[in-house]
């Protein structure tokens, strides 16, 4: 066998391992969610197909799973939206306007993103309690936005700084205001970057756990990750079928986003990380 054939076989084996490694927990989750019993493997019982688990988590009001889903989507969408708007404004100022401390602002944002979440959550809890904001959307949206802003800023600065200055100089000569240049010139050209930031912010907010755990106590603002983590059966036994069905429903939109926008998510992550 030539070196090339050996190489091709190695690559194939690697890809098979890589795919199996990444995907087997999802397949397991899907199988259990569609099975009448979670222990059919060890009991040597045959797999019996059912949709009862999905039915239960999507319709049983006492489980509040649809509430968690709605909270998660609204909170993540709002956080992603604010991140895009606020980071675009700041990134425009940093890349296009001459003001003292531009670079320090960028490195300040980087330094801030290094703080561990646990160092914020205790104080935030007292703060939100005093405001009476426990179990409200704003108690999560505002910290999420602040927490994701540094990464968003870095990604957008990297995109904006690649846009030729001549474009906005021309617009400036035509009498456009800064705001018009940002909305009509920069943002359309940097659309892939804006999409990356939106997707990443959405995913980060959707997956966040510690703030949501500490700042919510019931279904009014509790998000899906916390809901699934604290999922309890009514009769003491862990209802694995229900939990896996809820997990499938939660991961499905994220999996679809990843499959459709893989390129944008990867681009955003590498811009944010590598430039940092």
């Amino acid at each position: 066998m030539s070196e090339n054939t050996v190489r091709n076989w190695l690559v194939l084996a690697g890809i098979v391992f890589c795919l199996a490694f990444c995907l087997f927990p999802f397949i397991y989750m899907l199988v259990i969610s569609l099975s009448t019993r979670a222990d059919f493997l060890s009991q040597r019982a045959s797999f019996k197909f059912t949709l009862d688990n999905f039915n239960a988590v999507l319709t049983d009001g006492s489980l509040h799973f649809p509430d968690y889903l709605r909270n998660s989507f609204l909170i993540s969408l709002a956080s992603a939206f604010f991140c895009v708007v606020i980071a675009s404004l700041a990134a425009y100022a940093i890349t296009r306007l001459q003001f003292p401390g531009r670079m320090s602002l960028l490195f300040f944002a980087l330094a801030v993103s290094m703080f561990p979440q646990i160092g914020l959550v205790g104080y935030l809890f007292k703060f939100m309690t005093r405001l009476g904001w426990i179990n409200t959307y704003q108690a999560l949206v505002l910290p999420y936005t602040a927490w994701i802003l540094p990464l968003s800023l870095w990604i957008l600065v990297s995109y904006f700084s690649q846009i030729p200055r001549e474009l906005d100089k021309a617009a400036l000569v035509d009498g456009c205001t800064y705001r018009q240049i940002l909305c009509k010139v920069i943002l359309p050209v940097a659309a892939p970057g804006v999409l990356s930031v939106f997707l990443l912010s959405f995913i980060f907010a959707f997956n966040e756990f510690m703030f949501a755990l500490m700042l919510t106590t019931d279904y009014r603002a509790r998000t899906v990750p916390v809901g699934i983590a604290l999922f309890q059966g009514l009769h003491g036994q862990t209802p694995w079928g229900n939990i896996m069905a809820a997990s499938v429903v939660t991961t499905l939109p994220i999996v679809i986003l990843t499959l459709v926008f893989q390129r944008h998510i990867m681009a955003g992550l590498t811009r944010g990380a590598v430039k940092g």
Binding site: I203, N207, V226, W240, L259
Partner: peptide
């Protein structure tokens, strides 16, 4: 290749709490 990259991304993209539950069952 795009599909391979997307599949590799998926474990990163889903909530850690959900993966924690899946592994707890595993």
């Amino acid at each position: 290749r795009g599909l391979l990259r997307a599949c590799v991304l998926i474990p990163w993209a889903i909530p850690a709490a959900v993966s924690g539950r899946i592994w707890e069952l595993i």
